[in-house]
Computed example of a mutant assay.
Amino acid sequence: MSDAQQRIDDLVKTNDLVLFMKGNASFPMCGFSGRAIQILKAVGVDTRTLKTVNVLEDDGIRQGIKEYSNWPTIPQLYVKGEFVGGSDIMMEMYESGELQQVLGGSNPA
């Protein structure tokens, strides 16, 4: 496991909710990352307690996260160590009510 992979693994396993994104919760740097934040806010996540990782600040993480999850795009949401998906999957899960259930354990609304 590379250094970047180890850091990603630590982040995912030590935080209940982690969003790897471009920018941060208060200043998303791409539309997909912005949408991911809006979805999380809509389900009652306090974005001040959300662990975000700005992939633009660390190229090792930016590339490593794609290998870690086997998922080609950013943002990527992890809940309790499990990869949930990117903004499209988050939106589908939000619309079906599934995201609220997944997050219910770590962030009651």
Rank of each mutant, 00 (worst) to 15 (best):
R62A: 10
A25R: 02
S87W: 00
V53G: 10
M29H: 10
F27V: 15
V84W: 00
I39M: 01
W71Q: 02
M21W: 07
K13H: 13
R48D: 15
Y78E: 00
F83D: 00
Q63F: 06
F27R: 14
D58I: 09
V45C: 09
D59F: 12
D16F: 01
R48S: 15
I39C: 02
L17I: 14
Q63P: 06
R62I: 12
M91C: 01
R35Q: 13
A36R: 06
N24T: 13
V55I: 15
A36W: 03
G86S: 10
G34W: 04
D58R: 07
M91H: 01
I39E: 00
M90C: 10
L50P: 04
C30P: 12
F32K: 07
N70E: 11
N24W: 04
E57Y: 00
A25Q: 13
L56E: 08
K41G: 07
G86H: 06
P75D: 10
G34N: 15
G81K: 06
T47R: 09
N15L: 08
V12K: 04
G44F: 12
L77G: 05
V79I: 07
P72I: 05
E67A: 14
F20P: 05
Y78Q: 07
G60S: 08
M93G: 02
K51P: 05
S33T: 14
I39D: 01
G64L: 01
K13A: 08
I37M: 07
A42K: 14
G44H: 12
V55D: 04
T14D: 09
T47M: 11
Q38F: 02
I65T: 07
W71A: 01
T52K: 02
F27I: 13
A42T: 13
R48E: 15
Q76S: 04
